[in-house]
């Protein structure tokens, strides 16, 4: 039952050497009694949190609006705040992608992290220097994409899902020119078939094209050799998918681009 006697020391060689080299002097911390040191901290934290909760619950009432009316949509209609990032993405992509495929990719991508991040350093302590790429990508996805889109959806979206500054009056008749065009049309393609082909080329050049070009460029580096082809392609795929979101948001906000590739079955 007691795990204190069986602390495993995995991937030992590399991490031990880095520990030795590290100037922060990471030593094997010696163990202290759970009672009272840990239990005391937990108890204190629980009391403080419960105090905060009580004050919050007394001071602020949970919202109740008018009774449900399936025929009258409030303007604007917002999802729960923790889904507003997704609702914001729904502006840029069709529901099958923004509402289903992308969330699935986020979940699968998060689950895949321990298996694609094979860097043995930074296991169990704070460090940025030893894992710059992993932390940058994660913080970009979590803070820049997820959290800031939630802030945008919560505070900057008003009636008609138009952008309003927090102190602006929510005018339901605000006119915003949103007339949108597809990217192939913007690039000069006019016929349906050429637009289809141009769109397809753009999408395929990005993925898997981008991943394959990256593979060629990185082929001889140590990073690629350590990762191996499978891990590389999973990482590159997830990374490109994440970046596709940024590109689409930029294209929409800057040029009113609606779709990049229109097909009879789905639009991207």
């Amino acid at each position: 039952m007691d795990s204190t006697t069986t602390t495993p020391n995995p991937s030992s060689e590399v991490s031990e050497s880095t520990v030795k080299n590290d100037k922060k002097k990471i030593t094997l911390s010696h163990r202290i009694h759970t009672w009272p040191y840990l239990v005391r901290m937990e108890f204190l934290t629980a009391i403080i949190v419960m105090l905060g909760m009580t004050v919050w619950a007394i001071g602020m009432d949970a919202p109740t609006e008018q009774p449900a009316d399936p025929n009258r949509t409030p303007n604007p209609s917002k999802a729960p705040w923790y889904f507003l990032g997704l609702q914001e993405i729904l502006v840029y992509f069709d529901p099958w992608y923004a509402g289903v495929v992308l969330p699935t990719l986020i979940i699968v991508g998060l689950m895949a992290i321990p298996y694609i991040d094979i860097n043995p350093r930074g296991n169990g302590y704070y460090t940025f220097r030893e894992r710059k790429f992993a932390i940058s990508v994660f913080l970009f996805g979590f803070v820049v994409l997820w959290l800031s889109l939630i802030v945008l959806g919560t505070f900057f979206r008003g009636p008609g899902w138009n952008i309003f500054l927090p102190w602006e009056y929510w005018d339901p008749h605000k006119v915003v020119a949103l007339t949108s065009v597809d990217l192939p049309y913007m690039l000069g393609a006019r016929q349906e078939s050429t637009m289809f082909i141009v769109g397809m080329l753009l999408v395929f050049c990005y993925y898997p094209g981008g991943a394959l070009v990256g593979q060629l460029l990185l082929r001889d580096t140590n990073i690629y050799k350590q990762l191996g082809a499978v891990r590389y392609h999973i990482t590159a795929g997830l990374f490109l998918m994440m970046f596709a979101l940024v590109i689409k948001i930029f294209l929409r906000l800057a040029f009113n681009v609606k779709y990049i590739w229109v097909t009879p079955w789905f639009n991207v």
Binding site: E65, P67, A68, K78, F83, L86, G99
Partner: peptide, 16 residues
């Protein structure tokens, strides 16, 4: 079962 509830869930389930 208020307006907030039904419309948030309308949007959520329509994604499905």
């Amino acid at each position: 079962w208020d307006q907030l509830a039904i419309w948030a869930v309308t949007v959520g389930t329509n994604m499905a």
